[in-house]
Design a protein around this nucleic acid. Structure first.
Length: 94
RNA sequence: CAAAGAAGGACAGAUGAUCGCCGCCCACUGAAGUUUUACGUCAGUGGGGGGAGGAAAGUCCGGGCUCCAAAGAACAGGAUGGUUCCUAACGGGAACCGGGGGUAACCCUAGGGAAAGUGCCACAGAGAGGAGACCGUCUGCCGAAGUUUAGCUACGGUGGAUAAGGGUGAAAGGGUGAGGUAAGAGCUCACCAGUUCUGGCGGUGACGUCGGAAGCUCGGUAAACCCCAUCCGGAGCAAGGUCGAAUAGGGGAAUGUUUGAGGGCUGUUCGCCCGAAGUUCCCGGGUCUGGCUGCUUGAGGCCGUUGGCAACGACGGCCCUAGAUGAAUGAUCAUCGCCCUGCUGAAGGUAACUCCAGCAGGGAACAGAACCCGGCUUACGGACUUCUUUGGCCA
RNA sequence: GGCCCCGUAGCUCAGCUGGAUAGAGCGGCACCCUCCUAAGGUGAUUGUCGGAGGUUCGAAUCCUCCCGGGGUCG
């Protein structure tokens, strides 16, 4: 079963899967903001997932849910928050 | 110089580096397939080229396109509402007319009919629609007082006349003046406003203007019902077409076989069409929110000439400019550019002030195509050009 | 993407069509009752009627445009 991790602006769900690679799911609901803000957050999360493959274990499914307050964050803050929580998942599963 | 008004077009930072996203085209490699020197499909690598907006938004209107039969009629329902024009069409736009606002430039205007009919006009007020006598004004009679005597003045009661004045109200049934009267009144007259009918002139027209006659005056509300004129068939790309995959031939109900069940997705009716034996509905089960297509060349854009006051049209040339679908344009850094504020320096001017250079700090919005167009509305950044009005200062 | 619906007191709703007092229940407040609480009784309070503009003498109500929330589709 999956584990749940919380940060001030995001929720991360982690599951094991039977694929070779990790997969990412992103949920940004309409409460977060308008379409421009939602697309921006999704792009930044995808870029973090792509550029930081070395810090988290593979063969898992990750699902990131953005909370309502995340629309005002800068991209560096999103990277900082996500890297801290992804490193936590790696430690926990070791 | 300040404040303000109008119109207009263009923009929505640029370049480079690194890492990335989505289609298209070309080349190479590999895989499986077939009717095997070939074809397309899939995967990978490399290269080339393209990749959101003025509002893409709200979904408020109008169209194209698709299906409903080939889209027909009547009623219902809905929308619009000065005139002429523009347009594929519009509830959009342009010009003009009438009304209202502003010192002005200019702005606003759902602006047909209240004399076809019905309804409503709370509270207040006497009376809210062919009305009305509360106070008041005038007057007849009775009572009784004063002065003085057939009279006059004031008071009370009762009956009548009266829409001048007060008062109520958003609104009280034309306004001003004169005559008239017991007091008054369109009762009469003059002027003004308005109504109905009508004539001349100007305008395509809304209407304007100059007259005549009648009758004395007719309230408001139609974004109340309604009447009149014009327009509207319904649904929407989750339309529609096509290729599969999967599941099942299940249970229940209704109705019917030529005098025809049922269907053709709008509210009703008519009409029309399909339909020669099964059809329809409900329950249950299953499967991919399946692939392809529709899907981007269109009432397209730019430039020039030309008609028109303008909206817009005509002609000629050039160009092809996103097609995603759990939904593509991003992140970081550097440099330059733009705007604002402050300081310093220089120039011009009598002055208010303008302009240039440098430094520091800050700012750069609203917002993401989803079949495609034309509008409207809303959100929003700072610039630019032209014209105009008012006020101040200097000469 | 298309099509619909709803915003009224702290909460749930009526009033809107047909215009002139903004109301009902629950809640909260004060008082009474009780030794105290609950229950019960009495009283007062609570509203930019989602926002703006318009029509009208007058708008929660009629018209237009926005804002917010919700539903539905093969």
């Amino acid at each position: 079963m999956g584990c749940k991790f919380y940060t001030p602006h995001f929720v991360l769900l982690v599951f094991d899967n039977c694929e070779k690679n990790s997969r990412l799911g992103v949920t940004v609901s309409r409460k977060v903001g308008n379409a421009v803000q939602r697309n921006r957050i999704k792009r930044i999360i995808r870029e973090f997932f792509r550029t930081n493959r070395h810090i988290y274990p593979s063969a898992r499914d990750y699902s990131v849910i953005a909370k309502r307050s995340s629309a005002l964050l800068s991209s560096s803050k999103i990277h900082f928050e996500l890297s801290s929580v992804f490193l936590k998942t790696a430690k926990l599963n070791d």
